[in-house]
Design a protein around this nucleic acid. Structure first.
Lengths: 340, 340
DNA sequence: GTGAAAGCGCTAACAG
DNA sequence: CTGTTAGCGCTTTCAC
């Protein structure tokens, strides 16, 4: 191990001919130091290449300025954008993102242990495998948690969610307005909360129009899985006139499968809708009708809720829903007559 | 501010009826403690909900176990994958990712200051705006740095790079083998190192086949920019028979522009090649001929290089090149005769 | 406004 | 194997 030739506030104090606490004061906001002292200190610091040690500061302040962000690498495709924006909003609050991945339930204990050890100021969880138990652990240590696109049944933790019900209702309404009657739901992985929320949103919306028992196939959010499960479904079932997909990537996979292997057209023969509003959804070959999540506002809300909770731990848990925004593309048309 | 009711090793020691250092020993690897003591300590710790404070440990160990990863949010599209994999490899080395975004040169000083304050063990930089000066600053503080897909002219810092020259040579060779003679290079943003490397790779490869002065248009890596700059180019110039794009996203944009607005076919009328091997490149509507970066190996190499450097700071800077892998799609065909 | 001194929670010699 | 002790680099009273 290397012994870093660290330069400490004592070194600077010595060089500047002042006390160590004088040096400390120069680097703290809202503390009064005479101009003369400040200049002497800054000059010495510059010469020695001194930077205050945030670790030592953390130990005293009981605040690290770090926010743990937990993601699953297998997550829905819009996570990069979410992560980038979270990071930006967190940086604006003058805090830092400490990144954790949680891919399967077994790692849960380890990850939580590490997060607790690092004394983070708060946690943003974007992941499945995050059970009420985990939340309790953070609560015990007074570490605020905000869930992103995930809510606990008892709403005991603050959440920021896209309103998947409302989004799917808009999509289903469009399909129904186009006289569709034969639907297929292409759902996401069963262990994903978002996928479950979208599935139940689709079912509820269809139900409200009197459509019961709609068939469901399950993919894993990926393009390939969409093609595979649609292909398998088509072999054994009559084709629907409309497919409601759990995300845009699967919608795109469905479209390609319809065109390439089922030899049908989108939207003339089959209509397809997605969810997320990823950039590929607007590409000319697909032009998906979809619902985009207001990522900017949702990430901002998540960070603000968390920061408030850090400052005032007694704020009760709040669930904030954001409506999705309908993007009408060219992937929905009137249901074909001959299919009734 | 909340006064967290932290439980410290002293509390545990008291409850277990042992000394504080006994508690400490239980939580340190490779330190011998009697079974009896260990059990007493673990029991007390469990009851009190004790977790060792990593911050205090850092202060002594002179090692935080944190790696700063610097990204730019405007980066090339495959960054999410890179970040996820870096994070995974770093976690395997039992270290943590502290995330920093660097979008413009002005933030550079602030970001560096923060990274230094946080006493990270090392830095992985995936960003432009990272000048030799910045590297010097980290060197002064003995913080190892590894650049990802970026190299300094003097090779004074370790780098892990995809061999863009070799990748572009493969792509250009394919086009030349298909008798193409009229090329257009669609380059990425001028301030991106990767974009520059790919541009010069394309030029060199073309040059080696005797093609000089190939026209270049500049996009910003995005789908829209590709469409815009191709559209503007087409208004004033004869169309090429082959377009060499700086990344897959722009290649896809170019294909859509060719099909939708130029009313030509890909690959029959114009061939298009990309770079990166993003998942959309294999979608049925595009089937790009492209070169994929060995992201898994590159990220692993970057982390290993960095960890070695952390353990043995005297290792001289090394540049590791990884070859891209050619993926032959269906976006290249023989050059049309009538275009010569 | 400044310096002295007491910790933050832990690790790492050092005796016993 | 265990307890005692002295810090890691900083912030924060508290006198002056």
């Amino acid at each position: 191990m290397n012994k870093k030739n660290r330069v400490t506030s004592y070194d600077v104090a010595h060089a500047a001919g002042v006390s160590q606490s004088a040096v400390s004061r120069v680097y703290r906001p809202g503390v009064s130091v005479s101009k003369k002292t400040r200049e002497k200190v800054l000059k010495a610091a510059e010469e020695l290449g001194y930077k205050p040690n945030a670790i030592a500061r953390m130990l005293i302040n009981q605040s690290t300025g770090m926010i743990a962000v937990i993601i699953s690498s297998r997550a829905n495709v819009n996570f990069p954008e979410v992560l980038a924006q979270l990071n930006k909003h967190i940086a604006e609050k003058n805090k830092r993102v400490l990144l954790f991945t949680l891919d399967d339930a077994e790692q849960l204990e380890t990850v939580i242990e590490q997060i607790l050890a690092y004394q983070v100021d708060g946690v943003v969880a974007l992941t499945a495998h995050f059970e009420p138990d985990s939340v309790t652990q953070f609560a015990k240590h007074n570490i605020p948690v905000v869930l992103y696109n995930r809510e606990l049944p008892d709403h005991s933790v603050s959440s920021v969610c896209c309103n998947h019900d409302q989004g799917l209702r808009m999509l289903v309404d469009i399909l129904v307005n186009h006289h569709h009657q034969h639907f297929l739901i292409m759902a996401g992985p069963k262990d994903s909360d978002v996928a479950r929320a979208r599935l139940s949103g689709a079912r509820n919306a269809l139900l409200s129009h009197g459509f019961t028992d709609t068939n469901v196939v399950y993919g894993d959010y990926s393009y390939d899985s969409a093609r595979e499960c649609l292909s398998a479904y088509a072999e054994k079932n009559a084709l629907p006139t409309a497919i409601i997909c759990a995300n845009d990537t699967m919608a795109i996979g469905a479209i390609d499968e319809i065109r390439e292997n089922l030899n049908l057209r989108v939207p003339e023969d089959i209509s397809v809708v997605g969810f997320d509003g990823i950039s590929a959804s607007s590409w000319h070959s697909y032009q998906l009708t979809t619902v985009s999540q207001p990522t900017y506002f949702m990430t901002k809300a998540a960070v603000e809720t968390l920061v408030n909770l850090i400052e005032s731990p007694d704020i009760p848990p709040e669930t904030r829903y954001w409506p999705g925004k309908l993007i009408e593309g060219n992937s929905v048309a009137a249901a074909p007559r001959d299919n009734e």
